[in-house]
Design a protein around this nucleic acid. Structure first.
Length: 481
RNA sequence: GGCCCCGUCGUCUAGAGGCCUAGGACGCCGCCCUCUCAAGGCGGUAGCGUGGGUUCAAAUCCCAUCGGGGCUACCA
C-alpha cells in the first residue's frame, strides 16, 4: 500500500504551532514511508475562511520546509484541493446517501433539538440526536416540494457501535447511542466539515489520517460516512493536543501561537521542526537534536506519545541557540544583516559588513534569538553617547575608572601591531602596573566602547573596532568622568 | 451532566514484570573556565497521582479512585 496522507487546515486563522506539529508529523510519516504528502484546504466555513489566512498557512509551511507533493497550489489529479471548489461533489454524495437511506432531510428546529438535549442531560443519559423529532415523511416531502429548505442528516445506525484501532491510542470504541445524527448538508446546500473532509479522504485515496485529538470523537462519524459511501476507512492516528503551562489547550492567552510570531522573534525553522517533533515523539538513543532528514529516517508513528504536551518556550529557546551556533558564518550573516541594520538605523557599507563578518564568530555563540545579534553588534557602527545608566554608575563612577581609561589610552596609543594578542598583552600590563583586577580595570573600557556592561569579548572587539575609534571612544568617556 | 482520551522529575520524554537505589534533555542550583555576557566542562536538585490487589518480584498487569484534557454546532 502506498501511503497517502494529508494536512488539511481550515484557513480560519494563521498557521499555529499545534497545526504545524500536525503537518510535521504527516510530513515525517509520508517521507519515512515513501508516501505522498498532500495539502488540502478545508475551507467549508465560508464566513471565517480568508485568503489571508490561506496565504499565511502556505507561507509558513514553506518556511518550515514541509514541502507537499500534491494538493493546494501544487497541483495533482484531484482538482483544486480546495473544498469550496467541490460543492457539487459533496451535494452529489449527500443526495446519493439520502437515496440509499443513509441520510435524511431533517426539519427538527434548533429549539426542538435544544429541548431534546436538555431532557437527555437532565435524565443523565447520552444526548445524541436520533431523528426522533422528525415529522412523518409526507410532511417532509410537502415541505421540500414547497421549496422550503432543510438540512440533511446522516442516519447513524442504531443500535450499533463503531470500533477502530488508532495508531497512537490503540483500540477505540463508540456506542452509536452517543453519536448524533449529524448534519452533512446545511440548509443552504453547503457541506459541513464531516462530509467534505470524509468525501475528500475517500476521493483522494487517503490511507492514514493523522490529526489532532480534538477530532477523535468525530471519528465514528467519518468512519460511518466512509462505509456508507461504500469505501474502506483510512487508518487513523490522533495526536495529543499541545497545552499551555497551565495545562489548558494552547491558545493566544499563553503567548504567541502563530508561526509568524516565531519567525519574527528570531527562531529558525530547523529549531521549530526539531522542537515540535519532540513534543510527543522521541528520536531515540537519548538524542535531542536531529535534522529533518534524520527525523524522517527514524520516524515511527506507532511510538508517538499519547500524553498531551506542554509547549515549553525555554527549551525551544535553548534549541534555537543550538541551531544558531550550528549555522555557518555566511548563512548567519545573511540571516542577521537586516537585523543589525535595523538596530544601527542605516544600511551597512561594504566596510561595515567586513567588520561585522569579523565579529560574527563572537556573537554567533552568544545568541539564542536572532534579534539579539542586533544589540550585540550595534556598538561597532554607531557613536556611543547613550551609555547604559546602570553601567555608568556601577563601573564609571568608581575610582578605578579614570585610572583604567587613562592607562588604556597610554598603552594603546602607539601599540603595534593592532591585534587581539597585542591588545591583550598591553592592557594586562596596564592592569598590573596600576594594581587593577581584570574585572575592575576592563569594565570601564567595555562601557566606553560599547555603552554597556555586556559586549562581545573586549580585546577582539577593540581589534575589530580599530585603533582610532577605540581611542576616541575612550577619550570621550574619560572626558565625562 | 454524558461519551471518549490521558496520567513517570517543574517541562518534554526513556521505560513494554526482575537490567530501575527509574535513564536522557530543558529549566533551576553549585563548582570550574573566564575581561562582561554567553558557550563549554563537572556535579547536584527533582518524578512513577492515590488506594487496593496479582506475583518470589510492578513504574510496568488488574480493579477502584482522584486528577487533567477533548467532544457534546447548520465551527473545524
Amino acid at each position: 500500500m502506498t501511503v497517502r496522507v494529508r494536512f488539511a487546515p481550515s484557513p480560519t486563522g494563521y498557521l499555529h504551532v499545534g497545526a504545524a506539529r500536525t503537518a510535521l508529523y504527516n510530513y515525517l510519516f509520508a517521507r519515512h514511508s515513501g508516501g505522498t504528502f498532500i495539502l488540502r484546504s478545508d475551507d467549508t466555513d465560508r464566513a471565517r475562511s480568508t485568503d489571508e489566512f490561506q496565504a499565511d498557512i502556505l507561507e509558513y509551511l514553506r518556511w518550515l520546509g514541509l514541502e507537499w507533493d500534491e494538493g493546494f497550489d501544487a497541483g495533482g489529479r484531484h482538482g483544486s484541493y480546495r473544498q469550496s471548489d467541490r460543492y457539487d461533489r459533496y451535494r452529489e454524495v449527500a443526495h446519493g446517501l439520502v437515496r440509499r437511506g443513509h441520510a435524511y432531510y431533517s426539519l427538527a428546529t434548533g429549539e426542538q433539538l435544544d429541548a431534546f438535549k436538555q431532557a437527555a442531560r437532565a435524565a443523565g443519559t447520552s444526548p445524541a440526536y436520533d431523528g426522533s423529532l422528525e415529522p412523518p415523511y409526507e410532511e417532509i416531502s410537502k415541505w421540500l416540494a414547497a421549496g422550503e429548505t432543510a438540512v440533511v442528516r446522516f442516519k447513524v445506525p442504531r443500535p450499533g457501535e463503531t470500533t477502530f484501532t488508532d495508531v497512537v491510542r490503540g483500540d477505540i470504541r463508540f456506542d452509536h447511542a452517543q453519536v448524533d445524527d449529524f448534519v452533512i448538508l446545511r440548509s443552504d446546500g453547503t457541506p459541513t466539515y464531516h462530509l467534505a473532509s470524509t468525501v475528500d479522504d475517500v476521493d483522494y485515496g487517503i490511507t492514514h489520517v493523522i490529526r489532532g485529538e480534538d477530532l477523535l470523537s468525530s471519528t465514528p462519524k467519518h468512519i460511518l460516512l466512509t462505509q456508507a459511501m461504500g469505501a474502506e476507512p483510512a487508518i487513523y492516528a490522533h495526536l495529543s493536543l499541545l497545552m499551555g503551562p497551565d495545562g489548558k489547550k494552547l491558545s493566544k492567552r499563553h503567548g504567541d501561537t502563530a508561526m509568524s510570531a516565531y519567525r519574527e522573534a528570531g527562531y529558525l525553522p530547523e529549531a521549530m521542526n526539531n522542537y515540535l517533533a519532540l513534543l510527543g515523539w522521541n528520536i531515540g538513543d537519548d538524542e535531542t537534536i536531529a535534522s529533518l532528514d534524520e527525523m524522517v529516517e527514524r520516524f515511527d508513528l506507532s511510538t508517538v506519545s499519547k500524553n498531551p504536551a506542554v509547549f515549553d518556550h525555554k527549551k525551544l529557546e535553548w534549541m534555537n541557540g543550538v541551531y544558531i551556533r550550528d549555522m555557518d558564518d555566511d548563512e548567519f550573516v545573511s540571516a542577521t544583516l537586516p537585523i543589525v541594520e535595523e538596530a544601527v538605523g542605516r544600511a551597512l557599507s561594504e566596510g561595515d559588513r567586513e567588520r561585522f563578518a569579523r565579529l560574527v564568530p563572537l556573537v554567533k555563540e552568544r545568541a539564542k534569538l536572532l534579534p539579539e545579534v542586533g544589540s550585540q553588534a550595534r556598538f561597532l557602527f554607531v557613536e556611543i553617547d547613550d551609555y547604559d545608566e546602570a553601567a555608568w554608575s556601577k563601573v564609571m563612577e568608581v575610582d578605578a575608572a579614570p585610572v583604567a581609561l587613562d592607562g588604556a589610552l597610554a598603552v594603546l596609543e602607539d601599540l603595534e601591531p593592532w591585534t587581539t594578542e597585542a591588545i591583550d598583552a598591553a592592557l594586562r600590563g596596564m592592569l598590573e602596573e596600576h594594581g587593577l583586577s581584570a574585572r575592575k580595570g576592563l569594565q570601564p573600557i567595555r562601557v566606553a566602547i560599547s555603552g554597556s556592561m555586556v559586549s562581545p569579548p573586549l580585546f577582539e572587539s577593540l581589534e575589530i573596532l580599530g585603533r582610532a575609534e577605540t581611542l576616541e571612544r575612550i577619550r570621550n568617556a574619560r572626558a565625562l568622568l
